[in-house]
Design a binder for these strands. Structure first.
Length: 421
DNA sequence: TCTGGGGTCCTAGGACCC
DNA sequence: TCTGGGGTCCTAGGACCC
């Protein structure tokens, strides 16, 4: 059996932990640059607010309905996620952290009768230790555990748990799951299935495998079999190193100045370096890209450049140098730029780097410098030490007008409590 | 003023190898 | 007369996930 623990309305729940006034009220969290809705409380969902709704179009609606609005605060959500995951890890034999708010649990070799009781204990403990409410689905495959989890959240909100361990349990959950809510069915496949009169997960399980293979390829066949109770996806205990790492942002305001865009690209390259060193990897392909705003009726320009490095590296200094060389090659003056990014690929473990024959770069010095830089930034806060070309300007930064405090990651922003005696 | 930012896997087709 | 048969690697594009 697999379990799937999923945090309820995770970003909203994080905000509520530190702000009791939000309890029972409609709350939404916005995307970067305060663009659109990416998380909603149940009350906000009940008001008809949808994922992806544009924030500026809903201002009056928010005001009228007392909707509490927050910019996204990833320092807070990431740290709360760590706490939730660590709490779960203490209580189960094995788990796979699947996303910022979800984890699969290994219930292998555990008696079925005990699972629901264990799941209840997990829910209670996570809530007590972190303040975050979770729902748990239990089933013979990952895909069915997802179905069970959704069923628990939708139809048994007070219990918060649903276990599939008979055909009857499975059918009850499957018939209540529209195809678009199945793990692996997105917008396109949902439309296709509906056109063939398949509307819920139970109807999908009755489809012919060859037909599914033809329409949805092997991924679809795996999904079908998982829904029928046959395991196709195992639990992945170890986080696998990423094959590509990308850091990109839309700017708070359009930018025309090459100097400001240079600072932004250098900063993205620095973040790529940090992420690379964190997973103990090096890489040798740097990809830089630059966009104008496609939603605007003005001259458009998009370009990107791929650069090969002579030797794989994780040095921020080197990655920035190549990223900026790429930027120089694609930058054209006279456009209003809205977004840029740096991607890195050709990733290898840091202990398997092939040294270049004609490489003259003093690699040991960089390695030492990066180690010192990472350690200082870890202890003193991000960007305590950075590369000069990243600059000090904030011109390109995100717009985040309604961000809550970093309650758990910055001393200056701890929660304050007033006591009357 | 105004539309997120990361990732994964699979397939098809072309270039190339012997 | 008659046009091989195995492969690999790379890229672009399309589907999906949160």
């Amino acid at each position: 059996m697999f379990g799937l623990v999923d945090c309820n309305n995770f970003y909203v729940s994080c905000e509520r932990v530190f702000n009791a006034k939000l309890e029972g009220k409609p709350v939404v969290v916005l995307s970067n640059n305060d663009g659109c809705l990416i998380a909603r409380s149940n009350e906000a969902k009940a008001l008809g607010l949808k994922m992806g709704d544009l924030a500026f179009e809903k201002e009056a609606f928010f005001e009228k309905n007392g909707v509490q609005v927050f910019s996204s605060n990833y320092a807070l959500y990431g740290d709360m996620s760590d706490r939730v995951m660590k709490t779960i890890a203490q209580m189960v034999p094995g788990m796979e952290v699947y996303s910022i708010d979800e984890a699969f649990i290994d219930f292998h070799n555990m008696p079925y009768e005990d699972l629901e009781a264990l799941a209840q204990r997990i829910r209670k403990t996570v809530k007590q230790y972190t303040g975050i409410p979770v729902s748990i689905g239990i089933a013979p495959t990952k895909t069915l555990a997802k179905v069970a989890n959704r069923y628990a959240k939708k139809h048994l909100p007070h219990l918060g748990i649903y276990q599939i361990d008979s055909d009857h349990d499975a059918e009850k959950a499957l018939v209540n799951t529209p195809v678009e809510d199945i793990w692996g069915v997105g917008y396109k496949y949902a439309k296709m299935l509906n056109a063939h009169h398949i509307f819920n997960a139970l109807e999908l399980t009755q489809a012919k495998e060859e037909w599914i293979r033809q329409k949805m390829h092997v991924v679809g066949v795996r999904m079908l079999r998982e829904l029928q109770g046959e395991i196709c996806y195992q639990l992945d205990n170890e986080p696998t190193p990423k094959k590509g790492i990308c850091v990109s942002r839309s700017f708070g305001h359009s930018q025309r100045d090459v100097k400001i865009i240079t600072e932004a690209v250098a900063t993205f390259a620095a973040r790529v370096g940090e992420k690379l060193r964190k997973q103990k990897s090096c890489a040798h392909i740097v990809h830089v890209f630059l966009y104008t705003n496609p939603h605007k009726d003005e001259p458009q320009y998009f370009n990107s450049k791929v650069l090969q490095l002579p030797t794989s590296t994780s040095s921020t200094i080197e990655i920035i140098r190549y990223a900026l060389r790429g930027l120089e090659l694609i930058f054209k003056p006279g456009f209003n730029y809205k977004k840029a990014g740096v991607m890195i690929s050709g990733i290898v473990p840091e202990n398997q780097v092939q040294i270049g024959l004609f490489d003259t770069h003093k690699r040991e010095i960089d390695t030492k410098a990066m180690k010192a830089l990472d350690e200082l930034n870890r202890r003193m806060g991000r960007d305590t030490v950075k590369i000069a070309v990243q600059g000090f300007g904030r011109d390109w930064q995100l717009r985040q007008e309604r961000k809550s405090r970093c309650y758990t990651t910055r001393w200056q922003e701890l929660l304050e409590v007033e006591a009357w005696g």
